[in-house]
Simulated scan of single mutants.
Amino acid sequence: MIAAATVSLFVVMMLFCGLLRTLIQRRRTGDSGNRRTLSPRGSLEWMALTVTDIGYLTVGVAGPLAYWLGLPPVSALHHHLVQLLGVVLAIIGIVAAFAAQMSMGASWRIGVDDDERTGLVTTGAFRIVRNPIFTAVLVAFLGLTLMVPNLIAVTGWFCALVGIETQVRRVEEPHLLRLHGEPYAHYVATVGRFLPRLGRLRTRDDVSTDRL
């Protein structure tokens, strides 16, 4: 039952935050907003996005399947209240991720195009953290992990975290600094990366040299 619910929530998230958001973007702008195909195979962005996708699939599919086949949960997380918390976090994360995506309007993108200039969004949830979509996604997948808290799901969540961290720190932040210059440098100095006040960068060099 809980494994089926986990997969169902994962599918809902993919439909809303992937398919539906892309269709809305195409209808409003004539463009899907997807720039993933521009990343050469083997590039840093390609690897970051691939690792993230593997993490997503591990949490949303492999973890529940292993749970259904009898893989025992991590003992410290083996409690029905933990699973209930997971359901709550998954739903909150899905709703928050879609809302943050929508708040980007025409600037919403999947991946980076070095030749494209988009507006710098700093309003709404972006006033609190610089990457509210990724924050909400990580919360959602943490919820899915807690629903079927075995080693496969936990490993998948950390895999997604590493992919997202790499994409944000090593691809998107340097790109946005090149694109927006001082306004972005001021933004990263005052707003946290994934959590309020955490991950702020004080200088332009911090953006281009920050590491995991």
Results as ranks from 00 to 15, higher is better:
63 G>Y: 06
6 T>W: 02
208 S>C: 09
40 P>F: 06
123 T>D: 13
29 T>C: 10
112 V>Q: 14
19 L>P: 11
170 R>K: 14
125 A>P: 13
58 T>A: 05
23 L>V: 14
48 A>R: 05
161 L>A: 12
103 S>E: 13
207 V>W: 01
51 V>W: 03
77 L>D: 05
114 D>L: 09
126 F>D: 03
65 L>H: 08
197 R>A: 13
175 H>I: 00
211 R>K: 13
96 A>G: 14
94 I>Q: 04
7 V>Y: 01
105 G>K: 13
26 R>G: 06
204 R>T: 15
137 V>Y: 01
70 G>Q: 04
55 G>I: 03
201 L>D: 08
42 G>D: 07
70 G>H: 03
110 I>Q: 15
183 P>L: 08
183 P>A: 13
113 D>G: 11
84 L>S: 14
47 M>T: 14
209 T>F: 07
91 I>Q: 02
168 V>D: 07
168 V>A: 07
75 S>C: 03
39 S>M: 12
25 Q>D: 10
39 S>K: 11
25 Q>T: 09
91 I>V: 15
115 D>I: 00
25 Q>W: 00
28 R>I: 00
134 F>T: 07
144 L>T: 03
144 L>C: 02
114 D>P: 10
98 F>E: 12
106 A>R: 15
153 A>V: 01
178 R>S: 14
124 G>V: 06
99 A>F: 04
91 I>H: 06
49 L>P: 08
31 D>V: 07
133 I>A: 09
120 L>Y: 08
82 V>D: 06
6 T>K: 12
111 G>K: 12
169 R>V: 14
171 V>S: 08
59 V>Q: 00
66 A>K: 05
197 R>N: 07
31 D>M: 06
118 T>S: 07
15 L>V: 12
152 I>M: 10
126 F>Y: 09
64 P>I: 03
80 H>I: 07
121 V>H: 13
103 S>I: 05
168 V>K: 14
194 F>L: 15
70 G>A: 03
140 A>M: 05
107 S>M: 06
162 V>N: 05
76 A>Y: 07
26 R>E: 07
112 V>T: 14
73 P>C: 02
194 F>Q: 12
105 G>D: 04
138 L>A: 07
162 V>K: 10
146 L>I: 06
189 A>I: 12
1 M>T: 12
154 V>I: 04
18 G>R: 05
62 A>P: 01
99 A>W: 10
126 F>H: 13
13 M>N: 14
184 Y>M: 14
189 A>E: 14
81 L>K: 08
84 L>V: 12
27 R>V: 10
61 V>A: 02
100 A>L: 03
98 F>L: 06
119 G>P: 11
123 T>Y: 00
27 R>P: 02
155 T>R: 02
182 E>Y: 02
129 V>C: 01
3 A>N: 12
114 D>E: 14
18 G>D: 02
165 E>V: 08
196 P>H: 09
75 S>Q: 09
127 R>K: 08
195 L>R: 08
166 T>D: 11
24 I>K: 09
99 A>Y: 08
6 T>R: 05
75 S>F: 05
83 Q>M: 07
156 G>Q: 04
